[in-house]
Simulated scan of single mutants.
Amino acid sequence: MHIPLLIVGGNELDRRQQADRQVAAYTVSSFDLHKITSNEAKKSIGISQIKSLIQELLYSPVQGREKIGIIYELHHATVEAQNALLKLLEEPNETTILIATATRKEEVLPTIVSRCRIVTVQNEDEYVPTQEELNQLDTILKASEGDRMSYAEEIVKADTAKEWINTIIRTLRYTLITEYLQPTTYNLQLLINAIRTLDRAHITLEKTNTNQRLLMENLLLSLDQMPFQ
Rank of each mutant, 00 (worst) to 15 (best):
N211G: 07
E132A: 13
T103R: 13
R196W: 03
K105G: 02
T111R: 11
E153F: 00
K162W: 04
T208V: 03
I165W: 00
L214S: 14
T208C: 04
L188S: 07
Y180W: 14
N211E: 11
L141A: 13
Y127F: 15
K157G: 02
I203T: 10
R213D: 05
C116P: 03
L109C: 08
Q122S: 15
R104K: 12
L141F: 06
Q189G: 04
Q182F: 08
R148W: 11
R170N: 11
L219Y: 05
A102F: 01
A102P: 00
T130W: 01
N209S: 11
R148K: 15
N166E: 13
R104L: 08
I177S: 06
L215N: 01
L198K: 03
L134V: 07
G146Y: 05
I155L: 06
V121D: 01
S114D: 07
A152P: 10
K142R: 15
T175K: 04
N218A: 09
D147C: 07
Y180Q: 12
Q189W: 09
N135V: 07
V108R: 03
D138N: 13
D159H: 15
A158Q: 08
T120I: 11
V156G: 07
H202C: 03
R200Y: 06
L109Q: 06
D199N: 15
S144A: 09
L181C: 02
E124W: 07
Q136S: 12
T167W: 00
P129D: 06
L98F: 09
L176D: 00
V108C: 05
R170C: 04
D159W: 05
L134C: 09
D125H: 14
I155A: 02
R196F: 03
E132T: 15
R115Q: 12
R148Q: 13
S144D: 08
L141H: 12
L181Q: 13
N218G: 10
L98E: 07
N218T: 10
T175S: 13
I97M: 04
I118E: 05
P110N: 10
N218F: 08
V108N: 01
I177K: 13
T208Y: 10
L215E: 04
N135L: 15
K157L: 02
N187T: 14
I97E: 00
Y186C: 03
A143N: 06
T101L: 05
E163D: 15
E145I: 14
N166Y: 05
Q189T: 14
I169C: 06
Q212M: 03
W164Q: 07
E154H: 12
R200Q: 14
N209Q: 08
T210A: 09
T130F: 02
R213C: 04
T111I: 06
T103V: 06
T178C: 01
I192F: 06
S144Q: 08
L191T: 06
K207S: 14
N135M: 12
Q136I: 12
T139P: 02
I99G: 00
A158E: 12
V128L: 12
I140F: 03
N123L: 02
D125V: 08
I203S: 14
Y151F: 13
V108Y: 03
L223Q: 09
I99E: 08
Y127I: 01
E132K: 15
T101H: 07
K105D: 15
Y180C: 10
E206F: 04
T171R: 08
Q122D: 13
P129T: 11
L191P: 02
I118A: 09
N123F: 02
Y151R: 13
N209I: 05
A201M: 11
N166G: 04
E217Y: 13
T175F: 02
N187Q: 14
